[in-house]
């Protein structure tokens, strides 16, 4: 005689604190959070343009605020998160091999090195254009 099976699948609910259980989950969440700081910097740049539009006095006031200790700290924090985003992004991009060596993807360190080298060169070009250094 055939028996009937009645399944009662139990669906577990994930804790809102799932990202604290694994350091790699935490790093992922921090990487996602970096976008907030990048957006914040975009707003600061818009603020700078708005001040520039207001004339020399307006821009001087902006620069005074810009070089104040709190703003330097804020910019330092934004820079740290931007660097974290850049480094983790370069690490992520190694998952897509740009080329192959003897049919195999290149070593991860080589790919990251190429990206970082391009990044540094472009940064130096921008620095040269903006500030005339190095």
């Amino acid at each position: 005689m055939a028996t009937q099976t009645v399944r009662k699948p139990y669906v577990r609910h994930r804790s809102a604190w799932w990202w604290t259980k694994n350091p790699r989950y935490l790093l992922f969440q921090v990487r996602e959070l970096t976008s907030v700081f990048v957006v914040a910097y975009a707003f600061l740049l818009l603020w700078q343009l708005w001040a520039l539009r207001g004339g020399p006095e307006s821009y001087d006031a902006f620069l005074q605020m810009w070089y104040s200790r709190p703003m330097v700290i804020v910019n330092g924090i934004i820079l740290a998160f931007a660097l974290l985003h850049s480094v983790t992004w370069f690490a992520a991009t190694t998952k897509v091999p740009l080329f192959r060596i003897h049919g195999r993807p290149p070593p991860v360190a080589l790919t990251i090195g190429i990206y970082v080298a391009i990044w540094i060169v472009l940064s130096l070009v921008v620095a040269k254009l903006l500030y005339g250094v190095p």
Binding site: N22, R24, Y25, F28, E32, A92
Partner: peptide
């Protein structure tokens, strides 16, 4: 996929 990467780990 938001590329957490834990699947590969």
């Amino acid at each position: 996929c938001t590329f957490v990467g834990e699947c590969s780990v």
